[in-house]
Amino acid sequence: MINFNGKLIKEDNFITNDNRGYKFGDALFETLKVVHGKILFWEDHYFRLMASMRIMRMEIPMNFTMEFLEAEILKTINVNGLAKSSARVRFNVDRGDGGKYLPKEKRVSYSIDAEPLSNDFYTVSSLKSYTVDLYKDYFVAPGLLSTLKTNNKAINILGSIYAKENDFDNCLLLNTNKSVVEALQGNLFLVSGERIKTPPITDGCLNGVMRKHIIDVILNSGDYVLEEASISPFELQKADELFITNVIIGIQPILKYRKKVFDTKVSEDILRRLNTKMRLS
């Protein structure tokens, strides 16, 4: 069942051919992890959504409070029988139907869907191989719009197809300045000794919720130094470790890039610290 503007309906009955998210990508979304009825990092997701809606000049309804949207998400979880397990939730907001590039109305619509997840908490990946390469057919434009979770994901789609065709588990994206900005499904961190580096938001990487929490863990660790700076492709093979972050997987260590095989010691340590932080919060 899909939650469409507060109504629970069948999944194939909620979108029209005139929907602006479908026709023009005029939409934003948040990907959430919900564990036994608790939305992880909900405050961060909520404020990112509100900030993104303002950047996209969407009119925020008066009832879009944190409490209202949380209740709508949990209503969707419950009707899909996922209240006592873990779920991946997509909260989508668009400008509804009508208009060409210029919307006919200022109102927004929202939809929420949920699917089960196998893991309640973040664990170290058991994959024996996780290989990535650069995707260089198209580039991310540095700037504010690239940091938003919009429905305009052509580069991620084409990069995913490229990865599948070449037996890669993921690809790393470059911006127009030829700096490495992120992976197809998450933010990128590079480890060299005690220094951990991640691209700055100004390079065009997603303003990730998990990115924010990993940065907080690193800054409060006392053992690592964080640097937000552009990453050159030449740095990748010199690194001790590379890892990807998002709210669904937590941390995914990269095990191989071209001829370089990476360690996972630091990424596993950061993940343990993240889980400790979550238990204490």
Rank of each mutant, 00 (worst) to 15 (best):
G98R: 09
S146T: 10
S111L: 12
T76P: 01
V181T: 11
A87K: 06
P116W: 00
G193N: 06
I201R: 04
E67H: 12
K106G: 11
D94P: 04
N187E: 08
K106W: 00
T76I: 02
N151L: 11
G96F: 05
K136A: 10
K149T: 04
V89R: 07
P142A: 00
T150W: 11
M66K: 15
I77D: 01
S125W: 04
N187P: 06
S86R: 09
A163K: 01
D97T: 13
L190H: 05
D203Y: 03
D169P: 04
K128H: 00
L144F: 06
S118I: 14
L173Q: 02
D94M: 08
N175K: 05
R107P: 04
I157C: 08
T131M: 01
T198R: 07
R107V: 12
N92A: 06
N78F: 09
E59Q: 15
L134D: 07
T176D: 00
K178L: 11
N80T: 07
A163I: 03
S85P: 06
I161F: 08
D97E: 14
K128M: 08
K100E: 13
N78S: 14
S160T: 12
D113S: 14
L184I: 12
K84R: 13
Y135Q: 00
K84I: 07
A141N: 13
L145S: 12
Y101K: 13
L127A: 12
G204F: 07
E115C: 09
S111F: 09
P116A: 08
Y162F: 15
E72T: 03
A141Y: 12
K100I: 13
L184S: 06
K197S: 12
P142I: 06
Y138D: 13
I157A: 11
I112S: 05
V124Q: 14
K164C: 06
A141E: 13
E182F: 02
V124G: 08
K178W: 00
P200D: 08
E182C: 10
V180W: 05
A141S: 13
N78D: 14
Y162S: 05
Y101E: 11
K136L: 08
R95L: 11
K128F: 00
L117G: 09
N170H: 08
Y101P: 07
V132E: 02
K149Y: 09
K84E: 15
P200V: 06
Y122H: 10
Y122S: 09
S160I: 06
T150C: 11
G143I: 08
T202I: 10
N177H: 10
V191C: 02
G99H: 10
S109M: 08
N166L: 01
A71K: 15
N80V: 03
V79N: 06
G81V: 05
I201Q: 00
G143V: 07
Y101M: 13
S160E: 03
L174C: 02
